[in-house]
């Protein structure tokens, strides 16, 4: 099943009279259960593409569909509703709410979805166990290491059972062992739960994990390879 479809998406940022093209007509499709990496140098449009797929932003031209629904022209709150039910995010910085414990951070999407207390407790503990953070459930982010925070962020992204998880440079602020651990957990959860992961990176050690690699340059898709089968770089 197709989770995301991007059709000829363009994103232009205007600063005064200067127009910057972040994306110049990107088309792609992500199927359910994929573990896909977006690669390319800085400024190639990886983050912009993730933001369009995540309903955080809208294309200047073209269309974005999430599970068949056109999200290109939704209102702000409609996009919030779309994200809440369908999309989880993992950011480069360990984007936890500093005043909440690991447990409460993971619980937040469930609260926003209006789930009952017993169900929330079960789900949160299950996820914290899955990322190996159950023992540190009641620690605040400032009491956790970077790797630990990112693992909590993964649990949070999965909490509301989204069909798509978008990760923007999830290992960029981690050392190698922690980065590997985070990628292992993401891959394992992808295999176990079938949830689709799309992650942007320019770290070759991370690209290794991807089963599909989409390469961007100057706002265009220049290569789209399934693992092991490399297309020649344009």
């Amino acid at each position: 099943m197709e989770v995301v479809r991007v059709e000829n998406a363009t994103r232009v940022y205007r600063t005064g009279k200067v127009e910057t093209y972040a994306l110049r007509g990107v088309s792609l499709s992500i199927e359910s259960g994929e573990f896909t990496g977006l690669v390319g140098p800085s400024g190639s449009g990886k983050t912009t593409l993730l933001q369009l797929m995540g309903c955080l932003d809208q294309p200047t031209e073209g269309r974005v569909y999430i599970k068949g629904k056109d999200v290109s022209r939704l209102s702000r709150n409609q996009r919030a509703d779309m994200r809440r039910g369908n999309i989880g995010f993992i950011f480069q910085f360990f984007a936890l709410i500093p005043t909440l414990t690991a447990y409460e951070n993971v619980e937040m999407p469930l609260l926003l979805n209006g789930q009952g207390a017993a169900e929330r407790r079960k789900r949160v503990m299950e996820l914290l166990e899955a990322v190996g953070m159950a023992e540190r459930a009641h620690h605040r982010p400032d009491q956790l290491s970077g790797g630990e925070q990112q693992r909590v962020a993964i649990a949070r992204a999965l909490a509301a059972r989204p069909s798509l998880i978008l990760a923007d440079e999830p290992t960029a602020n981690l050392d190698t062992p922690n980065g590997q651990q985070v990628m292992e957990i993401m891959r394992r959860l992808n295999q176990e739960t079938g949830v689709t992961f799309v992650f942007a990176t320019h770290d070759p050690r991370v690209i290794r994990y991807a089963r599909r690699v989409i390469t961007l340059r100057d706002g265009l898709v220049v290569a789209d390879d399934v693992a092991g089968v490399r297309s020649p770089e344009a």
């Binding site: 995540g54 955080l56 702000r76 709150n77 919030a80 509703d81 779309m82 994200r83 809440r84 039910g85 999309i87 995010f89 950011f91 910085f93 984007a95 936890l96 709410i97 500093p98 937040m108 999407p109 926003l112 949070r156």
Partner: peptide, 16 residues
Amino acid sequence: TREIGILAAMGMRTGR
């Protein structure tokens, strides 16, 4: 600011 962005990304509506 960033924290508000995280909450919004998680799907918190403006009213909330």
